[in-house]
Simulated scan of single mutants.
Amino acid sequence: MPGNRHVRFGERLAETDRRQRRHRAAGRLNMLPLELGGAPKDPTNLWPEPHAGSENSSSKDSVENAVKKAVCADQATLANAQNAMLTDWTTAKSVLGIG
């Protein structure tokens, strides 16, 4: 039945489109940044990170960079930086006294 084949193809195409939209809306990033010792393939370190909104992938990248620079400049210990990022990355800079 040719009609059924086209319906199944259309359903698969729609599902692929839904998956791609979800992927574009959120990336898969590390809870603990790799620069601070996060494991790149550990499933417990992976989480969806939105590209939109105020707490998005870009703002987290900015915090990660500031925290990494603070550790490298001996303004924060690695352990304190890791703890601050894992507890709540949105407050990590203030907790560490770097921003």
Rank of each mutant, 00 (worst) to 15 (best):
G97M: 00
L78E: 07
R22G: 00
S94Y: 03
P2F: 10
N30A: 09
Q20V: 11
R22Q: 14
G99T: 03
T77G: 03
S94F: 06
T16W: 10
D74Y: 07
A14L: 12
G99Q: 00
P43D: 05
P43I: 04
L78Y: 05
V95S: 06
P43E: 07
N30I: 07
K41I: 09
E35C: 09
G3L: 15
D17V: 07
P50E: 06
H6A: 13
Q75V: 00
A70G: 03
P43S: 04
A92S: 00
D17Y: 08
K41R: 12
A81E: 06
A25M: 08
E15M: 08
A26T: 07
E64C: 06
T91C: 05
V95Q: 01
G37P: 06
K60H: 14
V95G: 05
R19D: 10
G97Y: 01
L29H: 14
L78G: 05
G38N: 05
H23K: 15
Q75S: 03
G37H: 03
S57I: 09
T77I: 01
H6L: 13
K68V: 15
T77D: 04
I98N: 04
H6R: 15
D74F: 00
P40L: 06
G27R: 15
D17W: 05
N4M: 11
D61F: 11
A25K: 11
H23E: 13
R12V: 06
G53E: 00
N4V: 10
A66V: 10
P48N: 10
A70R: 03
D61S: 12
F9R: 12
V7W: 10
G53T: 04
H6W: 11
K69Q: 14
R19V: 07
L34M: 12
C72Q: 14
S62C: 08
H51W: 12
C72F: 10
H23I: 11
D61G: 12
K93L: 01
A92R: 05
P40T: 06
A73G: 04
L29T: 13
D42H: 09
R19A: 11
E49D: 13
R18P: 01
K68C: 05
E15H: 07
T16I: 10
P40F: 03
L32G: 01
L78C: 05
G99V: 04
T77Y: 03
D88E: 05
G37K: 02
N80A: 15
R24L: 15
A26N: 08
E11W: 04
T90E: 05
D17K: 15
E15C: 04
L32W: 09
E49N: 07
C72W: 12
K41Y: 14
I98W: 03
R8P: 01
H6M: 11
L96C: 00
R8G: 07
